[in-house]
């Protein structure tokens, strides 16, 4: 089990309203990712769910039980911290067994559970080391191991991969996804890396200044962002925004078009000059100064034989133009 419902949840630190009011339901077994810019309240929200902070208002239900004023110990959730928060004075084995010991499990039962978790996480060889003698990825796995042995109702992750290098991040990301497929337990995952969000999530929650901007599957958000904030936040490289006369032609205050949805054609509506071209091999990124519009980022597939100063003609792909009103909301 692991359904989490937030109703009208508020949080303020003194004068500052970090989360004005928020409603959200996380279904059992879902992999939910919170994304948003730094300082938007992702960690705060996660800590509210964990019980490490009190909500200033509203209620939090876990599996239908009101948990708003339960201490973290009683909520049956497990958390993996950005700094891993391993107990430095305990061996890996003791670290993983700690929650079991706290739950009063017999040493023999705990040992077999630790062995099982270590097997899943490939930690077998390190069980007698101290956290200080492990690499970043191994520490991360210990932290996850400590979380899974408890068989919690849900896992909470707060930017668990941000201290790892790029290559390790990719492999750990896959490991966590696989873990989710095996365990089928609810996972709530905070990140500001949108690649992590897109690849791992069943459901993404985009936060901005403590408010939910949009909730949906990764492709939902990609295809139909409800406002300019989500449109600009999801997708890499960022969506191009066009204002002025060109937007008015389409009856909108603002137009949005993703770099990958602009084609280089013989005779398109937009004419421009290439300002900067980045050739990555698999892709080519072009900055094009378009007459009457401004700079557009364009993504070409493969090796495109164009260079700075070349004149090009561009056309947006049909149906891939996003129209936004004056308030930034998407127009249907």
């Amino acid at each position: 089990m692991g359904q989490i419902t937030l109703r009208n949840v508020k949080k303020s630190f003194g004068e500052v309203d970090v989360i004005p009011s928020l409603d959200l339901t996380i279904e059992n077994g879902e992999f939910v990712v919170f994304v948003g810019p730094s300082g938007c309240g992702k960690s705060t929200l996660l800590r509210l769910i964990a019980g490490l902070e009190d909500a200033s208002g509203g209620s939090i239900e876990i599996d239908g039980v009101d948990a708003t004023s339960l201490p973290p110990t009683k909520r049956g959730l497990a958390m993996v911290f950005q700094s891993y928060a391993l107990y430095p004075h305990m061996s890996v084995r003791k670290n993983i067994a700690f929650p079991l010991k706290m739950a009063g499990m017999s040493a023999a039962d705990a040992a077999s559970k630790v062995e099982a978790a270590a097997k899943v996480l490939n930690l077998g060889d390190y069980l007698d080391r101290r956290p200080g003698q492990l690499s970043g990825g191994q520490r991360q796995r210990v932290a996850i191991g400590r979380a899974i042995v408890r068989e919690p109702a849900a896992f909470l992750f707060d930017e668990p991969l941000s201290n790892l290098d790029a290559a390790l991040r990719v492999s750990m990301r896959q490991e966590i996804s696989e873990l989710h497929q095996t365990l089928k337990t609810t996972m709530v995952y905070v990140t500001h890396d949108q690649v992590e969000a897109m690849t791992m999530a069943d459901k993404i929650v985009v936060l901005h200044a403590g408010r939910i901007e949009q909730v949906g599957s990764p492709l939902d958000l990609y295809r139909s962002p409800v406002n300019t904030f989500v449109a600009g936040f999801i997708g890499s490289p960022k969506m191009n925004f066009i204002e002025g006369a060109e937007a008015e032609k389409h009856n909108a205050a603002m137009l949005g078009v993703r770099p990958e949805h602009i084609d280089i054609v013989e005779d398109g509506p937009w004419q421009g000059t290439i300002g900067l071209s980045e050739h990555l091999g698999s892709d080519t990124f072009l900055k094009v100064l378009v007459d009457g519009i401004g700079t557009l980022n364009v993504r070409g597939t493969g090796e495109v034989g164009l260079h700075t100063g070349d004149k090009v003609s561009l056309a947006p792909q049909p149906g891939k133009l996003h129209r936004f009103g004056k308030d930034g909301k998407a127009l249907s």
Binding site: P72, T73, Y87
Partner: peptide, 10 residues
């Protein structure tokens, strides 16, 4: 965070 982890661990 380490003490919070302990709290989360029950």
């Amino acid at each position: 965070e380490i003490l919070e982890a302990a709290r989360m661990d029950g």
